[in-house]
Simulated assay, not measured.
Amino acid sequence: MKTHDVIIVGGGLSGLSLAYYLEQNAINYKLLEGRSRLGGRVFTITKNGFPFEMGATWFGEKHKRLMALVKDLKIGYKPQVNGEKALVDQRPFGSVGFINIPSSEETTYKFTKGSFSLIEALSEKIPALKIQLNCKVNSIKQQSEYIEVNSDSESFCAKQVIVCLPPNLSQSINFQPALKTSFKNTLHQTHTWMGNSVKIAIAYENDFWSNDGFTGTIFSNQQSIQELYQHYNKSGYGLVGFINQKFNNLSVINLKEKAIKQLVEYFGEAAKDYKEISILNWHNERLTTSKHNQNLIPHQTNGAKSLREPEWKNNLWFGASETAKENPGYMNGAVVRAEELAKLLLKKIKA
């Protein structure tokens, strides 16, 4: 087995950002990803030129490290246009009506060509030989001189191992020797951002819903669509948002039917004439989340200091977004943690 300075487990935004920073500093590393694609919870499905955002979508000026990375990579982004008012559906406990959106609301942004353009830009900076897809890690073993990382088909070894999987999901790996009980409990109780979410994106020929300051922003606590926002590019118009989590157990077909029925109630028969519709239930993504995640409070234990403390004599680290001190559980948190780990590793390796 060839020995690397660093093995990164997980090719989501945190793992890929870490690889990008290590590449800039000529560190010998290998990135292992269980899926056939990179990006993890950053996932855009492009159909007929229209980006259907199935994962992380929005960010803001306060996300300074992410913004700096986006600018360094020269990735296009634009403001999210929410309009002057939102449609709020309070049924069955109230009515359907409009509320004004405060003009002082902080501007949020989204990527011009979809969030996955960030993943593509990062991966283009990393040699293909340093990334291995379809490589789900099942055990990590501490040996006398190195750490052994094993998948079903191959083994790797490194001086340092960074696990960039969501902490709760990291329990699927067999660590030898076992992690401290207190640390395992923290991993178990750390909520996975996006793990409970069901994303929906619908493309239309035109924005028939726009009217008098309303651009498609919808909120509802009880109906199938919980949040919805306008999304558009040169290829057409769309609405992107979240399904209410109480409908998580419905099939994609049933969710589509309920969502379109809800939009018909708001906008009439034009809502039936969609070009494409995509729904992704992250609850079913076993390489992102675990069943236990459904029992946790959103962002529970995210950012806990213990998640950033190394194990195995400072040779095993955890680096997903949920471990970040700043904005844990968001895209910015993933970049913040990657930068922090890159500095620690660079200092340790070159000491």
Rank of each mutant, 00 (worst) to 15 (best):
H4N: 05
D5K: 12
L13A: 07
S14L: 02
L16S: 00
S17I: 00
L18P: 00
L18V: 00
A19Y: 03
Q24M: 13
N25Q: 14
K30N: 02
G34N: 03
R37Y: 15
G39S: 12
G40H: 01
P51E: 02
E53Y: 04
A56L: 06
W58L: 12
F59M: 06
F59P: 00
F59A: 01
K62S: 10
R65H: 11
R65K: 08
L66P: 00
V70M: 02
K71R: 15
K71V: 07
D72S: 09
I75F: 09
V88M: 03
V88Q: 03
D89R: 03
Q90W: 13
P92E: 15
G94N: 08
I101M: 06
S104H: 09
S104M: 06
T107V: 12
T107Q: 10
Y109M: 00
G114Q: 03
I119F: 04
I126T: 10
P127R: 14
L129Y: 10
K130Y: 05
Q132R: 13
Q132V: 12
N134G: 06
C135M: 09
S139D: 09
Q142F: 01
E148K: 12
N150K: 07
D152G: 07
V161S: 07
V161Q: 09
I162E: 01
I162M: 03
C164I: 00
P166S: 07
P167A: 03
L169C: 03
S170W: 01
S170C: 13
Q171D: 06
Q176W: 11
Q176A: 12
Q176S: 14
P177S: 14
K180T: 11
K180E: 15
T181P: 02
S182R: 15
T186V: 11
H191D: 11
G195K: 05
S197T: 11
V198Q: 05
V198N: 03
I200E: 00
I202R: 02
I202A: 02
N206I: 08
N206W: 09
D207K: 13
W209N: 06
W209G: 03
G213I: 04
T215H: 07
F219W: 06
N221P: 05
Q223S: 09
S224V: 10
Q226M: 09
Q230L: 10
Y232A: 08
K234P: 00
S235V: 05
S235E: 11
G236V: 02
Y237E: 01
N244G: 08
N244K: 10
N248P: 07
N249A: 14
L255D: 02
E257H: 14
Q262W: 07
Y266W: 10
A270M: 08
D273M: 08
Y274T: 05
K275Q: 10
I277L: 13
S278I: 08
I279E: 00
N284D: 13
N284M: 10
E285I: 11
E285C: 04
T288R: 04
T288N: 08
S290D: 11
H292C: 05
N293V: 01
N293I: 08
Q294I: 05
Q294L: 15
N295R: 13
P298K: 09
H299M: 15
T301C: 14
T301Q: 15
G303S: 14
K305N: 15
E322P: 03
N327W: 02
Y330R: 03
M331T: 08
M331K: 07
V335A: 04
V336M: 03
R337P: 02
R337S: 04
R337W: 05
L341A: 04
L345R: 01
I349M: 11
A351E: 11
